[in-house]
Computed example of a mutant assay.
Amino acid sequence: MKEFLVELTTIVPEGTESVEVDRRRAAEAARAEELATAGHLVRLWRPVGELRSIGLWCAADEAELYEKVLGTLPLWPWMTAAVTPVQPHPNDPGRAGGAN
Rank of each mutant, 00 (worst) to 15 (best):
Q87V: 09
P90I: 00
E67Q: 12
P85M: 09
V48E: 12
E14M: 09
T16L: 14
W57M: 04
W78T: 10
L75Y: 04
A27K: 02
M79F: 08
W57E: 04
G15A: 07
E64P: 05
Y66F: 03
N100C: 05
L70G: 03
G98Q: 02
E14H: 12
K2T: 00
L70F: 07
G94S: 09
C58W: 01
V6W: 05
L75Q: 10
A27H: 02
H89W: 12
P74L: 07
A32Y: 15
L44Q: 12
L65M: 15
V69M: 07
A26I: 11
L41F: 02
E64N: 04
A60M: 06
L35F: 01
A27T: 08
K68W: 14
G55W: 00
A99L: 12
A60I: 01
G97M: 14
G15Q: 13
N100H: 10
A96E: 07
Y66K: 14
V83D: 02
N100D: 12
E64I: 00
W76D: 11
L44P: 06
E28D: 12
C58G: 01
D22Q: 10
R24I: 10
P85I: 10
A27L: 04
E33L: 11
E67D: 15
A26F: 09
Y66Q: 14
G55M: 02
G15D: 06
G71Y: 06
A30N: 06
V83W: 05
V69D: 09
Y66S: 04
L73S: 09
V83E: 03
A99E: 15
M79I: 09
S18Q: 06
K68F: 15
T80M: 05
N100I: 06
G49I: 04
G94M: 05
W78K: 07
L51Q: 10
P47F: 11
T10W: 08
T37N: 03
I11F: 08
T84D: 01
V86N: 14
R25M: 02
A30W: 02
W57R: 11
V86Q: 12
E62C: 00
P47V: 01
K2H: 01
F4M: 01
H40D: 00
R24F: 03
R24S: 06
H89F: 05
P74A: 08
V86H: 12
K2R: 07
E67L: 07
E3F: 08
E50V: 01
G49K: 15
G55L: 02
S18G: 04
T10Q: 13
G71D: 00
G71P: 08
L65N: 15
D22S: 05
A36Y: 03
V12N: 15
E17I: 14
A81M: 14
T37C: 06
R31C: 00
V42R: 15
T80K: 03
S53Y: 06
W45Q: 01
R23G: 04
E34R: 10
P93I: 02
E3P: 12
D22L: 08
G39E: 04
V42M: 09
T84Q: 05
R52C: 15
A26C: 09
V6I: 11
A82F: 01
E14T: 00
A59E: 11
C58Q: 08
H89Q: 15
V48L: 15
L75R: 03
A96F: 07
S53R: 13
E17D: 08
R52G: 13
Q87T: 10
W45G: 01
E20C: 06
L75K: 02
S53Q: 13
A30C: 05
T16H: 11
P90Y: 04
E34Y: 13
